[in-house]
């Protein structure tokens, strides 16, 4: 059986897999990192988005063997070791950008890549278009868009804290 060596959330793993094993199957079934979800079988929903070398990718549309030597970050690897959340995670909570939570890990991973690829900030329309690869059935995206805008401001130093304006 083929073997693949990859780094996931800072830890190096060598795993035996079938050639047909997808990265998401390796993460969920071999490494028991079940925060990365599978919501469709046509590469559209984005519940499985993780980072490979900092780029967001769909873990359901890449073979585990294609990840030889890769550096993978999943939702479980975002918070600091002391538990401090990534600003994007915090923003999702602050802006009520999640309901059932199923799309959330992929949405957060996509959002971070989106912000990182727009160092000058993003318009609302750019955020909406940037989420083309992620589906959410609960929120109507309204609060997701707000959360990402707020997190972008914090990540890029335009704002010091995420807190919403008083209601």
């Amino acid at each position: 059986m083929p073997q693949v060596t990859l780094t996931v959330n800072g830890t190096k793993h060598t795993v035996e897999v079938e050639a047909r094993t997808l990265l998401v199957e390796l993460l969920r079934e071999k490494l028991r990192l079940t925060g990365t979800h599978v919501g469709c079988d046509t590469s559209q929903c984005g519940a499985c988005v993780v980072h490979m070398g900092g780029d967001s990718i769909k873990a359901c549309t890449i073979l585990a063997v294609q990840c030889e030597g890769a550096d993978i970050t999943t939702i479980e690897g975002l918070a600091k070791p002391d538990g401090t959340l990534h600003p994007m995670q915090e923003a999702f909570r602050e802006y009520h950008a999640l309901q059932c939570g199923f799309c959330t890990p992929g949405m957060v991973m996509s959002a971070i890549d989106l912000v990182n690829k727009h160092p000058g900030g993003l318009s609302e329309q750019e955020i909406r278009e940037g989420l083309e690869g992620n589906l959410c059935r609960c929120t109507g995206y309204h609060n997701i868009v707000k959360a990402i805008a707020a997190a972008a401001d914090v990540m890029q130093g335009r704002r010091s804290e995420l807190a919403r304006a008083a209601e």
């Binding site: 984005g46 990718i57 549309t61 890549d113 690829k117």
Partner: peptide
């Protein structure tokens, strides 16, 4: 083309 994740791969 496609979505961000398609463009990244």
């Amino acid at each position: 083309i496609g979505d961000t994740q398609v463009r990244n791969r």
